[in-house]
Nucleic acid binder design. Structure first.
Length: 562
RNA sequence: UGGGGAGUCGUCUAAUGGCAGGACGGCAGACUCUGGAUCUGCUUGUAGGGGUUCGAAUCCUCUCUCCCCAGCCA
């Protein structure tokens, strides 16, 4: 009955498994998950999906979710990443309480368990070289062969393993392997390596260890030690589940259930650590938090909200089939959130001078402008209006196409929260013929907010007063790649979008933005959502375009007229 | 050709033998002092064959396609 009630839009196969486990009292009704990143890179939107699943499930079922660093490979891992990961998870809105764990905290215990397996005749020290191990492993279609060292005595194995730990052997010279089945169809079961010798200091255990556990050995044990009930991971670990189960069964330990789901793929970007690292290292982007990166840090700097990301993760669902989610859905979730909460402001990105010829020279009116029409509680502000203004260059056409609602010779438009103006003429550059100034008249009877000012015109433009405007730099970001699937034609680098970043200087913004601080978000009317970049300062305001507003006119033009 | 998985609108996802539904996108319209937002309507899908059944996306069977695995990475 409860199971039925749980189904519906937010149901998924993992919840159903958990529900069944609760009903059958498999773990005493407990639900305890974990998010287990390896601290070898920055988290991305794919990790956000996993974080939302793990923390979300724990919250939904009244359980707990641990943050555990899977730090078993000191060659690749660094403390810097630990801090970045914690910041990202926290920013996304999740709390692991005091349950911040590290696989490396369990190294001693892993070692004891290894000895237990050796004593049970289930593990052995192998002297084969890495190349030989590969050779002995066989192939996908042929069984492997047993190592000549496979049947050493327990005593010999114990002695050798102890000496491995003591640092008596060279890297690569010996490993500890589980003794399972060299002819298994599942390669993971062909005597998998449990420990390798790595004479490398670890970011937490320093030089205490020179043997390090492999993922398969460490992961299930860590889960077990922490009392995890549901160990949720991605599909590529499906093949590893028999091994996960084997270790815990052989040791007769608390045995969490491993469940695999399909990792997130997003169109027009890449989500593999290797590729993201390449983008950073080869300078195609400006670092891990470049606003074009699908990393949590990049999305944050771009102006995404945690709410938008969480909502996105909820909407994409959880399943086992490989899929590619349209990045448009992420953008939709963003706009939906920002629309509700971002205060509006007027900014002119590519300024065109407008002179209201019948407006008095020295006059300045402070006009009342709503901060967010979606939310009256956000109040209003005053914006100065005067004789000389800027409008968007793109909002004026000397020779307007059909369906044009904006300014053109002889045409009227409303200036948002101000007056209706009519274009009476233009001033052009003598040499280039470019329009440098538009001359207009205003209709004094059309002031916004006045009872008699309600006359209607088709178009409404945003504007800023020349004398009062602030200058700003605006960075326009677009999709990082030109193709929905950057991998589909050879090297993904080949389809990088050369216009993924366009920097505009000399943009004019309304004076109320003077004290905007990094991270603050706005909707620039008719343009999109923008946030103050961390490069911004009092003397040089810098805004990132988070996402554009949907522009119907752009679509009309794309299709060649209405 | 070994082992493990997966195939439902363009995309993501729901259905648990009983009306194939939702979201995004798209299209059309209404409204609009943001060509934004909002609202309304519409469109499109069970990989294929055979079987069981009053009834199949769901059960059985055969086939096809796609993904993952041969790190001392995770």
């Amino acid at each position: 009955m409860e199971g039925k009630a749980r189904r519906g839009p937010s149901s998924n196969f993992i919840k159903e498994i958990i529900l069944r486990d609760i009903e059958t009292n498999r773990y005493g009704g407990r639900v305890h998950t974990r998010f287990p990143p390896e601290p070898n890179g920055y988290l991305h939107i794919g990790h956000a999906k996993s974080i939302c699943i793990n923390f979300g499930l724990a919250a939904e079922f009244g359980g707990l979710c641990n943050l555990r660093f899977d730090d078993t490979n000191p060659v690749k891992e660094e403390a810097e990443y630990v801090e970045a990961i914690k910041e990202d998870v926290r920013w996304l809105g999740f709390d692991w309480g005091d349950r911040e764990y590290y696989a490396s905290d369990y190294f001693e215990q892993f070692y004891e368990y290894a000895i237990q397996l050796i004593k049970a005749g289930k593990a052995y020290v192998d002297d084969l070289s890495p190349d030989e191990i590969r050779e002995y492993r066989g192939t996908l279609t042929e069984p492997g062969r047993e190592s000549p060292y496979r049947n050493r005595s327990v005593e010999e194995n114990l002695g050798l393993f102890e000496r491995m730990r003591a640092g008596e052997f060279e890297e690569g010279s010996r490993v500890l392997r589980a003794k399972i089945d060299m002819s298994s169809g599942n390669l993971n079961m062909r005597d998998p390596v449990m420990y390798r010798i790595l004479k490398v200091p670890h970011h937490r255990t320093a030089d205490k260890w020179c043997i390090y556990p492999m993922y398969d050995w460490a992961h299930g044990l860590s889960d077990s030690i922490e009392g995890i009930t549901h160990s949720i991971c991605t599909l590529e670990f499906e093949d590893h589940r028999p091994l996960y189960d084997w270790f815990l069964d052989e040791l007769n330990l608390h045995h969490p259930r491993q469940i695999e789901f399909a990792r997130l793929n997003l169109s027009y970007t890449v989500l593999s650590k290797r590729k993201l690292t390449r983008l950073v290292e080869e300078g195609f982007v400006d670092g891990w938090d470049d606003p074009r990166m699908p990393t949590i840090a990049g999305l944050r700097r771009r102006g995404y909200t945690p709410e938008a990301i969480r909502n996105f993760c909820e909407r994409i669902g959880v399943a086992k089939s490989d899929s590619v989610v349209d990045i448009g859905l992420l953008e939709h979730c963003l706009r939906e959130d920002l629309n509700k909460r971002a205060p509006r402001a007027m900014a002119v990105l590519e300024p065109l001078r407008v002179v209201i010829v019948n407006y008095p020279e020295e006059r300045v009116e402070e006009l009342e402008v709503e901060n967010n029409p979606e939310d009256p509680s956000m109040g209003s502000r005053r914006v100065p209006f005067s004789r000389v203004l800027y409008i968007e260059r793109g909002d004026f056409r000397e020779d307007p196409p059909k369906g044009w609602f904006r300014l053109a010779p002889g045409r009227e438009v409303r200036l948002k929260s101000a007056y209706i103006i009519r274009c009476e003429g233009v001033v052009k550059d003598g040499r280039t013929g470019e329009v440098t100034e538009v001359h207009c008249t205003y209709d004094p009877g059309t002031k916004s907010g006045t009872p008699e000012g309600g006359r209607r015109v088709k178009g409404t433009l945003h504007w800023v007063s020349e004398a009062h405007a602030l200058e700003a730099e605006v960075r326009l970001y677009d999709r990082l790649f030109l193709r929905p699937n950057p991998d589909e034609a050879g090297d993904f680098i080949d389809c990088l979008n050369p216009d993924s970043l366009k920097v505009l200087r000399g943009c004019r913004i309304e004076p109320s933005l003077k004290d905007a601080v990094p991270g603050q978000r706005f909707q620039f009317l008719r343009l999109g959502y923008f946030c103050v970049d961390r490069d911004s300062s009092g003397s040089n305001l810098v805004f990132n375009r988070t996402v554009s507003l949907k522009d119907r006119w752009a679509k009309i033009e794309r299709k060649g007229g209405p």
